[in-house]
Design a protein around this nucleic acid. Structure first.
Lengths: 206, 206
DNA sequence: TCTATCATAAACAAGTTGTTTACGATAGAG
DNA sequence: CTCTATCGTAAACAACTTGTTTATGATAGA
């Protein structure tokens, strides 16, 4: 009486997991076999057996529900890196976009995004330093406290904190967030065209 | 004399670009056709024509060198999210890892990484706040100034700044990076097992 | 009106996939 | 040691997908 190789089962399970992480879809029986030095038919038989044992779901030739892996099938979105913050609608600069980057929704959320590199130190207190990448979600509404990208009255694209409306004169209040360099510095504008709201900051270290 | 639909060429080019961003590989002629309401043969003829015009490279049935897209073929790596910082080697906790996340090398660099969520405020000055995600690269060497993950003498996994060796007593100096709460706080240890070095911080806003 | 060519559907050939089958190798019971 | 169940393999099969060609109809433009 011979028994199926339990070690091989583990190898198959592990390989599928790694493959899934790298490719976002399951490998074929032949791919698994080639990687593990076995035949496709052997892998097929093991997959059927592993399905029977409940280690994974194998139906219609599709590998599904591998434990610990299902959650990695979460979505990704692509965000254009539009360079440093500057004038103009990022949308209209599409011709200049040279790089789209795929990022996971599980960390960065859902929506329509773009990335830009922050320059200057006006947002230091918000954790945004010179050279950091900022992930902006395109939206037309914001609430006080949000870090926003907006075209101000001079058609300049700026990154500032939205502080709300000044009740007295009805102007929109934008703040710097660096008390050391710009203590209490505020900007009042009549109208502002909101481009998006900063949702994440990616800082590089050393 | 009829002329090829230039608008359709633009649609094809755009569709391939978007598809590439989402799937990291080119679509099939039938996929393009279905999306644009045209036949596969029509798309095929357009692809050949577009290759002749130099708009893209189409060889052996493979779409390549679409302008603005080639750079997005850069690599991605998968990093396990190992939860909040805690005891033990992250490698040995593999059973508990429930989530692998694919991240682009073009932003985060190359190497073997894992993600962990920072707790506490001891790293505030380094731009690392409570709840931030920290991307750790596994490596066995570090230089003064690096934010490191290490097992200290008590087998505790800690996130601190490596300050170097104390010449006088030969001990390793680790620092907090929050002058407000822990002014000048340092830790001296005889030996430390380096788990990795923090390379990026992902901060969530609002 | 006529014709070049655009676009389509259908078919083709090649490759990939899951799956089955026949057969050799071998662990383990007797 | 002998024998047999079954493990694993190679080969083949059928279904499907892929790029590509071909024959046919539609139509813009001379």
């Amino acid at each position: 009486m011979r028994s199926k190789n339990p070690e091989l089962m583990g190898q198959i399970s592990r390989y599928i997991g790694e493959y899934f992480r790298d490719h976002h879809h399951a490998p074929t029986t032949r791919e698994i076999g080639a990687a593990l030095g076995r035949s496709a038919a052997c892998i097929y038989q093991y997959l059927v057996e592993m399905d029977r044992k409940g280690m994974l779901t194998y139906q219609d030739g599709k590998i599904m529900n591998l434990p610990k892996i299902n959650k990695t099938t979460l979505g990704y979105f692509s965000a254009p890196l539009v360079g440093s913050i500057r004038c103009g609608d990022p949308e209209s600069q599409e011709e200049e976009v040279e790089l789209y980057i795929s990022l996971p929704e599980v960390i960065f959320g859902q929506g329509e995004f773009y990335l830009l590199r922050a320059t200057g130190d006006s947002m230091e207190d918000a954790g945004i330093g010179d050279g950091d990448l900022i992930l902006i979600r395109k939206q037309t509404e914001c609430k006080p406290g949000d870090i926003i990208v907006a075209l101000d009255e001079n058609e300049e694209n700026t990154l500032k904190r939205y502080a709300g409306l000044d009740e007295k004169n009805g102007k929109i209040v934008l703040e710097y967030a660096n008390e050391k360099v710009y203590p209490g510095k505020r900007i009042l504008v009549d109208r502002l065209s909101l481009q998006g709201v900063a949702k994440s900051v990616i800082k590089g270290l050393g």
